[in-house]
Design a protein around this nucleic acid. Structure first.
Length: 534
DNA sequence: ACGGTACTACCATCCAGTGC
DNA sequence: GCACTGGATGGTAGTACCGT
């Protein structure tokens, strides 16, 4: 930390040397005070008189003399780090010379926060701590440091007290904590100025004692300041989370979505959208295919409910004129961390309700990892003792199965249709649940085991319809309400192949479809799963 | 230093326009 | 028709200034 501090001071000096006029450099604005000379309680007294003369911070109503930097010394136009569309008055109250004032880009800010988070992650002390990303008014003027409400309530006194701020060198600064306002007032300014904190710096505050905050600063920044493009400035996700799908990744997600859509037999209208940047990172306008709008959506602006695979609902505004979703879509996209290239299947289950299934483009690269971990988890069914219990967990397992099946499909070029998540959630008319994916089946097995240990109706997992037991060709009906009779739940290779011929997975009363086959010696389970047709 | 309040910047959303 | 950019707008949280 000491090294970081010194680097920081060195960095600031470099900036000054690079940017300021020669005269300014000759007249140091902040002296690099030796460690042993750092102030203990009132460090501002150590700040050179030069600074105090140059910048006067006033909060009083008494007559103010407008503050100007001597034009002979400083060209104020050149000092401004950012050209602002409107003149800003805060600069008049800056406690630091304007040539030291910097504005962090989103990228720089995110970088500092990341450093602080890494630091916090490695803190083994167990003390309560929080991270603050500095903004202009915390380091250049005003000097009000708000503390997260939750932290105040949980860890700080309910009365106004003096809190000691301790830096990495052990130097202490007394500050006034205002409980009502949940922040630091007097004293924070001294700390900020003494450490030359800048906009974008990320600080880790660790409460080592009830009234002592140890502050660690992560001040490393990328020296290169790249001007973010306009959309990046408005990105609702941190830039380090922003990804751009390759053509291959995009195609993979679309293929998965198409496979899924192909197996959706509910008959509801649906369409697929491949996400682009402006739909998931900024702007958040989701255009809906015109044909779909004209045929299936209202001609007026209405609220449409977006429902995800877990049943969570998001109200969104459908603009009929513009044929797209506006307000509300943003929330859905952010909540699901949608990325560029992801393919979504929109199913209109009700006139004003869209059920949305997400197919991630970037799972293309993680597929193998997932496969391996799932195999490890599930190949030995005897190890699956944990009770997922609730319906949601079961659904998630099924969803995983479906996704994994899609992975397989993408590899084997659709040799075998997969089971859709919908198919296992009791969707009407779905007769197909077969799969040739061992990975997916393993997860389905997990789901079934979960079912065995839970009170969840099996009908929430297994699609309704008719099934044929391979052993004796007996027909079973699986109903939404359950009512299972003794039967094998399985099929064998021949059954699966016959299904591929399209003979056993057609809809209709006479249609039959096996569920799944794990392997020659590992069956899905022997459960009471259907009503034998007499 | 504290607290009130007018003001500002930011965010979320909507929309117009452009280019492919 | 669609993706994309960037401006307009309204609401609101936070800021900047000022009085005490």
């Amino acid at each position: 930390m000491v090294r970081i501090r010194k680097n920081k001071l060195h960095y600031n000096n470099n900036i000054i040397v690079d940017n300021a006029s020669e005269e300014i450099c000759k007249q140091p604005l902040f002296e690099e005070t030796p460690k042993e000379e750092l102030p203990v309680v009132k460090p501002e007294l150590k700040i050179s008189d030069t600074i105090v003369d140059m910048v006067e911070v006033r909060r009083s109503s008494r007559e103010r003399k407008p503050i100007f930097f001597d034009s002979e010394e400083i060209d104020t136009e050149l000092q401004r780090p950012l050209k602002r569309s409107k003149p800003s008055s805060w600069q008049r109250y800056s406690a630091r010379p304007l040539n030291e004032v910097k504005f962090a880009s989103d990228e720089e800010r995110a970088y500092a926060i990341q450093c602080a988070q890494n630091f916090q992650h490695n803190l083994l002390s167990g003390h309560p701590c929080f991270i603050k990303s500095m903004v202009r008014t915390q380091v250049y003027s005003c000097f009000w440091l708000g503390i997260p409400t939750e932290f105040c309530l949980n860890h700080l006194p309910s009365d106004d007290v003096t809190i000691v701020l301790e830096d990495e060198d052990g130097v202490e600064y007394n500050s006034v904590y205002l409980a009502d306002r949940k922040g630091l007032s007097g004293g924070w300014r001294a700390f900020a100025l003494a450490h030359k904190l800048d906009d974008g710096d990320a600080l880790v505050f660790e409460l080592t004692e009830p009234r002592r905050l140890e502050i660690d600063t992560e001040l490393q920044r990328p020296l290169k300041r790249s001007k973010p493009s306009s959309w990046q400035r408005y990105s609702a996700r941190p830039l380090n989370e922003v990804k751009f799908a390759s053509d291959e990744e995009r195609a993979y997600a679309i293929q998965c979505a198409q496979n899924f859509q192909h197996n959706l037999l509910s008959g509801h209208p649906c369409f697929i959208k491949s996400m682009v940047r402006t739909q998931v990172y900024s702007c958040f306008w989701l255009g809906i295919p015109t044909e779909f709008c004209l045929n299936h959506l209202p001609s007026d602006d209405v609220t449409i409910v977006l429902e995800d695979e877990d049943g969570v609902e998001y109200n969104s505004v459908y603009l009929a004129d513009r044929k797209g979703l506006s307000g509300g879509w943003r929330a859905f996209a952010l909540a699901h961390k949608l990325d560029d290239g992801d393919a979504l299947v929109f199913e209109l289950t009700e006139p004003r309700r869209l059920e949305i299934y997400v197919f991630k483009a970037f799972e293309l690269h993680t597929r193998k990892v997932v496969k391996n971990s799932v195999e490890k988890t599930n190949i030995n069914s005897g190890k699956m003792t944990s009770k997922m219990g609730d319906k949601k967990a079961t659904k998630n397992s099924i969803k995983k199965a479906a996704k994994l099946n899609q992975d397989e499909n993408s590899v084997v070029e659709n040799d075998c249709p997969f089971t859709s998540p919908k198919a296992h959630t009791g969707g009407d008319g779905l007769k197909t649940a077969a799969s040739c994916s061992n990975e997916g089946i393993s997860v389905m097995e997990e789901a079934l085991h979960s079912y065995e240990d839970s009170e969840v109706s099996v009908s929430s997992m297994v699609p309704h319809g008719l099934y044929k037991r391979e052993r004796d060709q007996t027909l079973f009906r699986i109903t939404p309400a359950g009512g299972w009779k003794s039967a094998d739940f399985c099929c064998n290779e021949q059954t699966f192949e016959s299904r591929e011929d399209g003979k056993s997975c057609e809809g209709g009363d006479s249609s039959v479809s096996p569920l799944v086959q794990l392997s020659d010696d590992l069956w899905f389970g022997k459960k009471q799963i259907g009503t034998e047709l007499v």
